[in-house]
Design a protein around this nucleic acid. Structure first.
Lengths: 347, 347
DNA sequence: TTCAAAATTCAAAACGTTTTAATTTAATAT
DNA sequence: ATATTAAATTAAAACGTTTTGAATTTTGAA
């Protein structure tokens, strides 16, 4: 494998100049740059990452801890993140080291991986309010980037969508269509994103002057089955009244809700409107739902590039940056005007 | 962070001696070793892996490519391997770099990861007969270890179980119980392990002088549902006769088979015997099946330590070693004597 | 005591890169 | 022509470890 010295010898240059030429330093003669580039190409030069890392003090590797659930279930979300992150980091000459969290204590796996002294930083996901990992890594002075955020305002690097706005946008769409009895089938309550969605939902409903009975707010829904069961229950209208619209944690949950609607002999969007948040996972194409699903959309895959960029920049000394974007509202066929007969037959 | 030089300065020794002392070289004075160890402990010394790697020429990292299926389904198997491998490699001061295979060509992801020049070797799993990855890595001279094997005799490092013996043991148990009509519900036919299981099954049946009609051999069964459907079909006995025993690719498939048995109004082991191979995945405890499942057992997790050891040794220059072990046969309640009435009511 | 052999220890090179500070070469102004 | 400045290049140090070959000290025998 050719080294900087080899290229230098080939051209009668010092390794220093060759290094500068290849790294685009301004003070090197344009002509030399071209000669160096040519020679590097010809000799098949590839920088020795280990040597680079020794001198820069950075390893070029970042870590990510996979939290395995109690039921050992792996989900599409994880693979989607893994695929996206390896690609995005690879483009920045950074490698991803994975470890599996088998402990109860959330910081132990981070401490363990840190002790191996090979990581420049971490990618954190699934933030919970008051996340212990944040305090731990900040105290240790280890750079990290969070996918999402633990609070409305934070002082660490993060990238994600505005989950308060996700609910607000959904509610605003539904109320503009005349809906008044809107239900929320929210995700795992322990995660920060779910708290934000709930807050956004409540704020938006209050702003519209609408009441939300407790039985219209469900939590911890992740699967199609959970969406189905919860929606079926709400549509029974045991509290005296049933919702005319659902805001769902995910497209998977929405699939369950739509099935419940159908099983109740109802029709979306004629009788019931459904909105969901869409992570744009493969094989879960909201547009192919029957009816095509209205969503707030933010492709999980798309988050990987900014996450990688933010982390790598932060590792290199840039200040921690927060980037929160707004999910796109895509109106399709699962939402429509609220049924005019306020007390429809199924209520 | 303390360096070898720091420790040397502290004790009036050269870095060379300190290095040797910590690495257990025989020529260093026992007393010095103790002093060095103490000082290293006191100063919180941890070797700089990057520097080690620069001088040894090894990176201390190995790669593993995850092949994502078309349906993006992740399975327990993958997490089990990931968990086990990170732990086993960590114990050998080696880190695991993951990448995701999104290509059709099986070697492309290996080539890509290799071009990053940071890997000492690879862990390969899910071998197929004539696996292209083997030829590619051998040609490149990159060490690797295969979980399983592409052929009965191979010249690369591998660790796994004897899948021919798995079937033979299962068949031998069943024939010793008097079974004559034995069905095989095999796994994904494209994988080498399935070919071995099939071969073992056929050889063992032939040795016993037993015929196996085509409709008693099913392939590509992975899920509980597939096991259920295939078994239901075979129990219908459309070919004029139904099996009295099943050899199953996995415990998950066996769960489906047992459900089919029950749905047919039959009872295991009275009417039907069932054997499966058990990877000992968490939450799939064969012993808790109803009835407790007779299995050939080889915990997937247990394979990780030898795989890591074989690979790390091979990277360090040891010759490629093949280790094939025999799975343990555990007889439980799902197998019993063949029904005496050769033409039982359900046939 | 003295010498050879064995047991320890050390200095220095090596790994391949980046970067600081110094040096050379070229260009411009006097 | 000479001094001054700018541009381009280089030598050398640094990162922290391992390892080679040499040097030192200790031990044992003569």
């Amino acid at each position: 494998m050719a080294t900087l010295k080899d290229i230098g010898a080939e051209l009668g240059l010092s390794p220093a100049t060759v290094s500068r030429a290849l790294n685009g330093f301004p003070e090197v003669n344009k002509d030399t740059v071209n000669r160096v580039r040519e020679a590097a190409e010809r000799l098949g030069y590839r920088p020795n990452r280990i040597a680079q890392r020794l001198v820069t003090g950075r390893s070029g590797m970042v870590g990510m801890i996979i939290k395995i659930r109690a039921d050992m279930s792996a989900d599409q979300t994880f693979f989607e993140m893994l695929t996206g992150m390896t690609a995005a980091l690879g483009a920045l000459d950074t490698d991803l080291v994975l470890a599996v969290d088998q402990d109860d204590d959330p910081v132990t796996p981070y401490r363990k991986l840190l002790e191996r002294d090979i990581l420049d930083g971490f990618i954190l996901n699934a933030p919970v309010p008051g996340d212990a990992r944040v305090a731990f890594l900040q105290e240790k002075g280890i750079p990290f980037v969070m996918h999402g955020q633990t609070a409305p305002v934070v002082d660490y690097a993060c990238y994600g969508i505005d989950n308060v706005a996700v609910s607000e946008d959904a509610v605003r769409l539904l109320t503009s269509l005349g809906h008044k009895r809107i239900a929320l089938i929210n995700g795992q309550a322990r995660y920060a994103f779910a708290a934000d969605r709930l807050r956004g939902f409540q704020m938006a409903m209050q702003k519209e002057g609408l009441q939300v009975p407790d039985e219209f707010m469900a939590v911890d829904a992740e699967t199609e089955m959970e969406g189905y069961t919860l929606a079926l229950d709400m549509l029974a209208g045991r509290g005296g009244t049933a919702p005319t619209a659902f805001v769902c944690a995910s497209t998977l949950v929405a699939a369950g809700v739509l099935r419940a609607v159908k099983d109740r002999g109802l029709k979306a969007p004629r009788d019931i409107s459904v909105v969901a948040h869409d992570d744009a996972l493969p094989l879960m194409h909201a547009v192919n739902f029957e009816p095509a699903l209205t969503v707030t959309r933010a492709a999980l895959r798309d988050a990987c590039v900014p996450l990688a960029e933010l982390l790598v920049a932060h590792v290199k000394g840039a200040p921690a940056e927060q980037r929160i974007e707004r999910a796109e509202l895509i109106v399709r066929q699962s939402t429509g005007p609220a049924p005019t007969n306020g007390d429809a037959p199924w209520h």
